[in-house]
Design a protein around this nucleic acid. Structure first.
Length: 490
RNA sequence: CGGGGUAUAGCGCAGCCCGGUAGCGCGCGUCGUUCGGGACGACGAGGUCGUGGGUUCAAAUCCCGCUACCCCGACCA
């Protein structure tokens, strides 16, 4: 084994890092905190992007593009928003370089200072609401249902591939509505789109819920989140949908004339999902052999590896492989026939395991003789010999089974790592010794939440589907009407 | 931004304490034998030792500065 991963049990963070690098998803770049997303990693992002894009359009949204740069003055408009992002903004101050005559080096031309600095967008609410002001006069102009696929920059102190990088890719939806109710419904609709995407497409079960006051998006009235559980017992916020109320409409003076002929401020939402989701995908399913990709998001769903000696054995194997490939392709399955003679079969087996290809077929001389093929499942590592006849439809169905099996395994893991806790001691025990989600009563106060944060865990969300239940806050002992989800988080 | 660590061939590392010819494994190239789980042998290519200064006859090695990266914390998607 040339490319061995650190095992999850030895060092989860190192395992993750090794896996991202060795499976060829991404690597660190020459720019601090910024990663290069390599072709295989980008192919996964493209699959995610295409599916989300389809879902956005299905729910009535259209794509647009707004500038990377935002005038600094826009940022002073919404007080909470500014406060939330001020500490991590990259700022453009000059527009020209020149050659220093003494040293011959390229330097920033001090004479080329911008009159107003430009902020590299950490998110686009401000530039978008400045623009929407011009688009909206009447209720007839509403709703506006726009999404943009873009890069954003948040100057992070400590970065990790996919999970937290200075620049990352995402989509941000920004909608404008005539009524509060409609905006709230949109917020809810989009968090459900994210939940469905995460569960059905990526096989990652999520909790849907509200963020607490201190955890919500800066500038939002309410933030809805999907929270996933990683294999090391830490939570990961995988997507957020914000009800912005009239905060940005007021900050940017976006008013419209309603049906009654009266002026009112517009109601807003925004929602986003990022390349961080690739990190979630990795940490939700993969093992010590490499990635495990659910078939729906796998760039390659089936790989065919030929096994042969000399040139005589290859042609019939290639013929059988290409036949199966054609049958699978006709069924909409993405197949790679790896006929490179520069790598050995064993090398290829390990490589595609590392890359998480869901199904591998091996075809050798024995198979040609017997009309068979060796089929290996990445998720279970099971191998069996199957007849070539009917293999395509079998695999087509198997991919669906694998998708469900991976999802079910993740659900089982989450169930096994979700703990009801009734006291502070039990909460600390879960957080320190067991990991996972702790369901605990909370009195709703900031003081109690701060006390929880001292454990380095946080309230991940107030689940939407939680049954009302009377109890006592695990911090204060005060009455509580519901349980919240507490966990350490990425 | 605090604490710790690292920087030597494409990658992973040794050499540094005790200054004196640049080394190992993997990978890479050629040829041969191989090919059903990361093959083997032979030969070969590849390094301004992160960077700037200092000490010295002599610096990868000792001293000072700088930079980058990694890990741990605080902040965040």
């Amino acid at each position: 084994m040339a490319k061995v991963l650190t095992s999850k049990e030895d060092n989860y963070a190192q395992w993750y890092n090794d896996l991202v690098l060795k499976s060829g998803l991404a690597e660190n770049s020459a720019v601090r905190g910024c990663m290069v997303i390599k072709p295989y990693g980008y192919a996964i992002w493209e699959k995610m992007r295409d599916e989300l894009d389809r879902m956005f359009k299905e729910t009535g949204h259209e794509n647009a593009y707004f500038p990377l740069f935002i005038p600094k003055s826009f940022f002073s408009r919404e007080a909470n928003h500014v406060e939330g992002f001020a500490k991590e903004c990259a700022v453009v101050t000059h527009y020209r370089l020149k050659t220093d005559e003494e040293t011959g080096e390229i330097v920033v031309d001090p004479d080329a200072r911008l009159e107003e600095e430009l902020i590299v967008r950490p998110t686009s609410e401000t530039i978008i609401w400045n623009t929407y002001k011009n688009w909206i006069q009447s209720y007839r102009d509403l709703p506006i249902m726009v999404n943009q696929w873009a890069n954003v920059v948040r100057w992070e102190m400590r970065t990790r591939l996919f999970l937290r990088t200075t620049e990352f890719l995402w989509q941000e939806g920004h909608t404008a509505h005539a009524t509060r109710q409609e905006a709230e419904e949109e917020t809810m609709q989009m968090v459900k789109v994210y939940a469905e995407f995460s569960e059905n497409f990526l096989g990652i079960p999520v909790l849907v819920g509200n963020k607490t006051e201190s955890e919500k998006f800066a500038g939002a009235v309410e933030t809805l989140t999907i929270e996933a559980l990683m294999q090391d017992g830490k939570a990961l916020q995988a997507g957020t949908s914000h009800f912005l109320g009239q905060n940005f409409a007021k900050a940017f003076d976006v008013q419209f004339t309603n049906k009654e002929g009266k002026l009112d401020h517009v109601w807003a939402t925004s929602w986003g999902m990022t390349t961080r989701m690739i990190g979630a995908l990795i940490m939700a399913h993969s093992d010590n052999h490499g990635l495990i990709l659910p078939p729906r998001v796998a760039p390659i769903q089936v790989v065919i590896v030929p096994i042969y000696r000399g040139n005589d054995e290859f042609p019939p194997i290639a013929e059988a492989a290409n036949k199966i490939k054609a049958q699978l392709t006709a069924l909409g399955v993405s197949v790679k026939f790896d006929d490179r003679d520069t790598q050995k079969p064993g090398w290829k087996f390990a490589e595609y395991e590392l890359k998480g290809v869901p199904v591998r077929l091996a075809i050798g001389p024995r198979d040609i003789e017997n009309g068979t093929v060796e089929l290996a499942r990445r998720d279970t590592l099971e191998k069996k010999v199957m007849p070539q006849k009917g293999i395509a439809t079998y695999i087509h169905d198997l991919l669906e089974e694998i998708q469900q099996s991976i999802y079910q395994k993740a659900i089982n893991f989450r169930n096994a790592n979700t703990h009801h806790v009734e006291s502070w001691d039990e909460l600390v025990d879960v957080l320190e010794n067991k990991g996972g989600f702790a369901l605990a009563h909370w009195d709703g106060s900031k003081e109690s939440e701060d006390r929880i944060k001292e454990t380095k865990a946080s309230i991940r969300c107030l689940p939407l589907d939680a049954e009302p239940e009377e109890g006592k806050c695990v911090v204060s002992g005060k009455p509580s009407l519901r349980r919240v989800v507490i966990a350490k988080a990425y």
